[in-house]
Computed example of a mutant assay.
Amino acid sequence: MKIFKADYVFPIHADPIKDGVVTVDDEGTIISVTDQPPSGTDPATITRLDGIICPGFVNTHCHLELSHLQGKITEGEGLINFIKNIQLIRNSDPEEVEAAAIKADSDMYESGIVAVGDISNSNATIALKAKSKIYYHTFVETFGFTPEKAESVFENALALAEQFKSQPCSVTPHAPYSVSKELLKLIKKYSDDNPYKNLISIHNQECEDENKFYRYKLGSFNELYEHFGIDISYFKPQARNSLQSILPLLTNKQGILLVHNTCTNLKDIYFIKRFDRRINWCFCPNANLYIEGSLPKVDLFLDQGFNITLGTDSLASNKKLCILSEMSTLQAKFPALTIERLLKWATLNGATFLGIEKSKGSLEAGKQPGLNLISGLNSDLMITADTKVRRLL
């Protein structure tokens, strides 16, 4: 048995506890979370810590297989150039890809991450995930904006998902601008036929040109399709944003994670409320700044009744895979975000989306959520330049 006492304990599902005490067994299972040590405890056996104790973090959006691209793509060149560069240099020596992914997995574990929603376009991370101390849910991503290729793209995705079958796995669309309506309909049918077994994660409204393309068929996406030799003559302007255009084509049987949301507006949020869809949001602020130099209008999403989570995106678009770093960026831009709210986004909300809230995401008796110590907060429990996270369990 191990007993930890800190300035505050944040159970997440309940109010923070000042001078809180967390007791766990040797396997990391929570025994109790209280304001007093268990009766009869020898004070010498209590580990006293400065800072706050919280559950392990949940990273709901990552691209582990792109870890070898760290530092290889110039910052601030926009989404279109980012996509071109990714396709140009993503293929590399398999040993380099594997080594970088293994290091990234280890770094995430050390930074207090206990679970990851990871995007995969190949089988490069299967063996790594099978051995990892981190829980992974793999989203096998589909690309195919040409309608006639929908069937073959979908079958290839199913074949890759079969290779991941011993691990939690879904087949999911990449983004509105890269998946045809025909392919979306195939994924919807598959999701509808497999309730609670095919979570959806889709990149959403990462730049203004995505909405411009859907509304008017204008902007830089036309040049992107030309660059890749994709004939989009069939596509007609939808007279509405990309999110509003594809939402009716998404399943209402599964949880849906909309990732990035850099250019999502209040009309989009109200539009979603008109539909019976299990929408969750994921913010990856450091990747947004790396690629587009802008952040989502986070204030619009608050108190709207949606589940909000955090992600890191990949090392191609981020300097490190660290949830605390994402929290820090958000609080610096939106000071009204309390540590309590950010921690819920970083833990229980992510666990809830991934369907692992019975074991992770909050400090409750019987769970094994991992324990993190966050130190270096100021007197108002705001993140500072000195704030650090240390994994306790």
Rank of each mutant, 00 (worst) to 15 (best):
V9E: 01
P11I: 08
D15G: 09
D15H: 13
P16T: 10
I17M: 12
V22P: 02
D25L: 10
S32P: 00
S32L: 00
P37W: 05
G56D: 05
T60E: 03
H63M: 09
G71E: 08
G76D: 04
G78T: 08
G78K: 12
L79E: 06
I83V: 11
N85K: 15
I89G: 03
N91R: 12
E95Y: 13
A101Y: 09
A104V: 10
S106R: 15
S122I: 01
L128K: 12
K129E: 12
K129A: 09
Y135E: 05
P147M: 12
A150P: 04
A150N: 10
E151A: 13
S152F: 12
F154Q: 06
F164L: 14
S170F: 00
S170T: 03
K188H: 06
S191P: 00
N204V: 10
N211A: 04
Y216C: 10
S220I: 09
S220L: 15
F221P: 01
F228L: 02
G229C: 01
I232N: 02
F235H: 00
S242F: 08
L249R: 00
L250Q: 02
C263K: 12
C263M: 13
R277Q: 05
N280A: 06
N280S: 14
C282F: 00
P285S: 03
G293W: 04
D299H: 13
F301P: 05
N307D: 07
N318V: 07
K320H: 09
I323L: 01
S325C: 00
E326Q: 12
S328N: 14
T329V: 07
F334H: 06
A336E: 15
T338W: 02
F353Q: 03
S362G: 08
I374L: 11
I374A: 11
M382G: 15
R390D: 14
R391S: 11
